[in-house]
Amino acid sequence: MSKVLTAVAGRRSYSRVSVDAPSHAELLPLVEAAARVADHGALRPWRLIELRGAARERLGEALVAASGKKGERDPGMAAKPLRAELLIAVVASRQRSSKVPKWEQDATAAGVAHMLSLLLADAGWGVFWRTGPLTRATTVRKMHKLADTEELLGWLYVGGVPANAKAGKRLKIDPEKFLSAL
């Protein structure tokens, strides 16, 4: 089995990660490699935003505001971004193109996110991708300073693999059910 196939087949999400996180400098070569995903027209219709420290707290406040519970304290909602020391916001940054539709640009951005999650996992980091109904809320958009041509696709939560992490169980698929011919 190839190294890539082994790494991909062993990929798992860690819903809990330790407080360790890669530095900005450690992320740079991984982001550079993730940019190799299929990208029709080489538009680079994506960008990533690092959220560390107080930025995670501001995201929690934006999520609470988006939930409509402004007058109530919702510690669960506010604490969600604090589950990892590093969050990487994945942004589809759509470019004007007569040849590449928006959906294809969004697919490229999602491809970068998935590729980055594989690269982070291969580098020994725990990663999980979080989305949800508030991902595209106005307060959340504003907090990320998104342009009108951009959409937030979610966040990669990145941290150390917990010492007590158990091997994840993933249901195997029958590839014959998902691969057909015409």
Rank of each mutant, 00 (worst) to 15 (best):
L28R: 08
E26R: 08
K169T: 15
A35Y: 02
A38N: 15
L63P: 01
S2M: 06
V17M: 02
I173H: 08
P75S: 06
A55K: 03
W155D: 02
S13V: 00
V8L: 11
D174S: 10
M115I: 01
A147D: 14
T149E: 04
E104S: 06
L51G: 01
R44V: 15
T131K: 10
D74W: 11
N164G: 13
G168C: 09
K70Y: 04
A33V: 15
L120E: 03
A62V: 02
A147V: 12
Q95R: 13
A137F: 05
A9D: 13
R36M: 06
M115F: 09
A84F: 00
V90A: 02
L134R: 13
S18H: 06
D20C: 09
R44D: 07
R96S: 08
P162F: 02
V8F: 07
G124E: 09
Q105W: 01
D20M: 13
E176S: 13
D174Y: 06
A79Q: 09
L182Q: 14
L27T: 01
A163T: 15
K142Y: 03
K3F: 06
T108Q: 05
S97C: 06
T139V: 12
K102I: 09
E85L: 07
K145M: 10
T149R: 10
P45M: 01
E150L: 02
T149A: 06
L171A: 13
E26D: 12
Y157P: 01
K142E: 13
A25V: 10
E151L: 07
R130Y: 08
L179V: 12
L59C: 02
V31I: 12
K70L: 09
R52V: 13
T6M: 05
K145A: 12
S2Q: 09
S97Y: 11
R44N: 11
E150F: 05
W125Q: 10
T138Q: 07
Y14D: 12
S67K: 04
P22M: 03
G159M: 06
K99N: 08
K142D: 14
E61A: 10
R12D: 05
P101R: 05
A107G: 13
G154I: 01
G41L: 09
E176W: 05
P29W: 02
E57M: 08
A89K: 00
S2L: 04
M1C: 14
H114R: 07
D122P: 07
S97M: 08
R96N: 14
R11T: 10
F178K: 14
E26K: 03
F178L: 07
V64D: 00
P29C: 04
A62S: 03
V140F: 00
N164K: 15
R56K: 14
G53T: 11
S117V: 11
L118Y: 09
N164V: 14
G53N: 14
G68F: 05
L156N: 00
P175Q: 03
S180Y: 07
H114Y: 13
K102A: 10
I173L: 08
F128M: 07
A79P: 02
P81C: 04
E57R: 12
L120T: 00
A84D: 07
